[in-house]
């Protein structure tokens, strides 16, 4: 029996909400009337199991465990204190139990839509337009860099770094960190506004080497993802970054 139980539980869950929905469905209760104690217990058991199997437990699963325990602890309060707590909740924030239920209901709706989309995807796979399903677009795949090579890019990057080194001495140094994903979004944003941008302009406002490096890494990542293309009109000329054709 135990084995069987484990098999079911080892389904891959998309996240803590998904796991909770599964547990609620399994115990056959109304989503608005979750037996918090029971569900919390099962939830923690599941985490335990994941740990035993050395699976990575995403931080979100732990946050949810804490939320469940908070809700559980509140429900153990004597009735008067609970009312008091509730009054306080109303003035401050939503009661955690309701917040969770609302989140679950909302999530479930999207999960249902996702299932619907999945079905449509399968259906759509069986349908072919006259040119045989968009398979004709090749070409750009082999040339992710557009018209220039990675070496051209690195070269340009090097120059930018040198320029920055000269500038850096004259500036105050700010303690600021830049993540590649921030830069990634920034580049995409710039391109969606302007359509094209010169390589050096991307770095024009960079204040530090760290920022330049982050920007450059973001650039490479976007080229890999085929979101953008780098091109050069003349050999060794200015490199231009453009949005990849959709």
């Amino acid at each position: 029996m135990v084995e069987n139980d484990y098999k079911v539980r080892l389904e891959i869950f998309e996240g803590p909400l998904d796991l909770l929905l599964y547990l609620i469905k399994k115990t056959e209760v109304d989503i608005y009337d979750i037996p918090i104690e029971k569900v919390t217990k099962q939830y923690l058991e599941y985490l335990q199991l994941m740990r035993m199997l050395n699976l990575d437990i995403a931080g979100e699963f732990l946050v949810m465990a804490a939320t469940l325990m908070l809700i559980k602890s509140r429900m153990l309060l004597p009735a008067e204190e609970r009312a008091e707590q509730q009054a306080r909740d109303e003035t401050e924030e939503e009661e955690p139990r309701w917040a969770l239920i609302r989140q679950l209901v909302e999530y479930k709706k999207f999960k249902d839509v996702a299932a619907h989309l999945g079905k449509r995807e399968l259906m759509q796979e069986q349908v072919f337009p006259r040119h045989g399903g968009g398979e004709i677009e090749t070409g750009s795949a082999e040339l992710p860099l557009g018209d220039i090579s990675i070496f051209d890019l690195i070269n340009a990057f090097n120059e930018t770094l040198k320029r920055a080194a000269r500038r850096e001495n004259l500036r105050e140094i700010f303690e600021e960190t830049f993540s590649v994903s921030d830069k990634l979004e920034e580049i995409l944003w710039t391109l969606s506004e302007k359509g094209a941008v010169r390589f050096h302009d991307l770095f024009a406002h960079a204040a530090s080497r760290g920022e330049i490096v982050a920007t450059f890494l973001a650039l490479l990542e976007l080229i890999r993802l085929k979101q953008i293309r780098a091109r050069q009109r003349v050999h060794f000329g200015e490199i231009e970054i453009v949005k990849a054709a959709a």
């Binding site: 998309e14 999960k111 996702a114 299932a115 989309l117 999945g118 995807e121 399968l122 796979e125």
Partner: peptide, 13 residues
Amino acid sequence: PQRLSPSALETLA
């Protein structure tokens, strides 16, 4: 065919 993963479908929804 490359089908979308459940998490991709959810996010897309």
